[in-house]
Design a protein around this nucleic acid. Structure first.
Lengths: 224, 224
DNA sequence: ATCGAAACTGACCGATTGGTCAAGTATCGA
DNA sequence: TCGATACTTGACCAATCGGTCAGTTTCGAT
């Protein structure tokens, strides 16, 4: 962006790229909802366009094709995911790492429930678009963490549980509140989960996991 | 079943009702696969008919409509689910009950992965067909169990964790291996989960849950 | 004022959707 | 052998699908 362009977009909020940016944001949000509810095949461009308040032709003008739109949404969700995959080392405190892991995963589900459900629908369908990611980057990430968990176990900092099953346990438990939201709300007779609910669940899951695999709680987490 | 139907199926085992039975079984199996992969909207009768090896017209002859077929599959899955919702009382041993709970849920996901994914897709879509079930029978069942868990906690048999979150934890962790099978297999580089894998995961989850909420293991579960 | 590019959209396309229907064939008890 | 019932299926339907395209409007830079 040149300095003049910046000046232009400051001058008027519908400057050069602003229209495109706004419409794309609207389309992506609408598409995420529809794809999350009905999966790739079950989603229709007409439904997405209606949600976005745009003609179908306009939607295709920006996104090119249904497949392109879907892939773009998946990539955005994977980027959010990768953003919280911080590095850890065997020197870190297991309790701190596990709690941060659970908490950040829980917040991702909380902040992007539609994206989480979109991902879930993709996996349910057999991950036709994400095969390479699962067998590549994500597998590497899991194996790296697993190696560190094993070192912790050797040092007696936690029980010698299978690290991969442990990671799956944390993933499933946290993702549940986004993917199965309809079930959670129906059974607990709620309209929505409050921030307090989410915090309570986070604390519950953290305690279950830490105690379950024999990790001593953090120092500042007093017994009660 | 009417009296005439019973008489007919008793008379000859490949008699009148046998053709219907065989075709319906084939159709239901095919439909479960397709609905599980693509959800209600994403599934097409043509795809189901192709999987079942029947013309689409024949499929509709037996099932009446797409909606009717889908509802029938959901009801079949709920029946399987209800079949393992045995009654428990506060006098039972918490460790035994929790282990049986985890084990039977794990086996349900193992034996009927497509049914499990079908259910998951229905919930992902906002449970349009299962709202009443979730807010009725299933809620009652959860609340009944929760009451017993609380009694156990009062008697010091387990930590005073929120029973509902605990039930959701067990549901999500067990269901994960059916619903996210593609992810599990991709990350662990497997073609399928073996019986030994499932047993290992079951033992892992049982130990995590029992230890996590402070339940003493069963007497015959020796320490090692 | 004018020009080029970006944005926009209704009309339209062939393919697929769930579903109907009439015209069969198969199988059975009588 | 015969009528009834269950079963089978290709042809067909209106509606919807993802996508194309030509034509128009909008808008900033000159």
């Amino acid at each position: 962006m040149t300095q003049r362009d910046v000046a232009a977009s400051v001058r008027t909020d519908n400057g050069n790229g602003a229209t495109r940016e706004r419409n794309e944001r609207e389309i992506l949000a609408a598409a995420e909802r529809v794809f999350a509810n009905h999966g790739y095949r079950g989603a229709s461009l007409a439904a997405i366009a209606a949600q976005a308040g745009l003609p179908k032709s306009n939607l295709l003008y920006y996104m090119g094709s249904k497949r392109g739109l879907y892939v773009r949404l998946l990539e955005r969700m994977m980027a959010r995911w990768n953003a919280l995959l911080d590095d850890i080392s065997a020197e870190d405190d297991p309790a701190e790492v596990l709690e941060a892991f659970i908490r950040s995963k829980m917040q991702l589900s909380r902040r992007h429930p539609e994206g989480s459900r979109l991902f879930a629908a993709e996996i349910l369908a057999g991950a036709p678009f994400l095969q390479d990611y699962l067998r590549g980057d994500l597998r590497d990430w899991v194996q790296a963490r697993a190696a560190i968990f094993r070192q912790w176990a050797e040092r007696g900092l936690m029980d010698p549980v299978d690290p991969v099953w442990l990671i799956f346990l944390i993933w499933s438990a946290t993702q549940h509140y986004a993917d199965f939201e309809a079930q959670v709300l129906g059974i607990t007779d709620r309209d929505a989960l409050s921030d307090a609910d989410v915090e309570e669940i986070t604390v519950f899951l953290t305690r279950m996991v830490l105690k379950g695999c024999g990790v001593a709680p953090r120092a500042d987490e007093s017994e009660r």
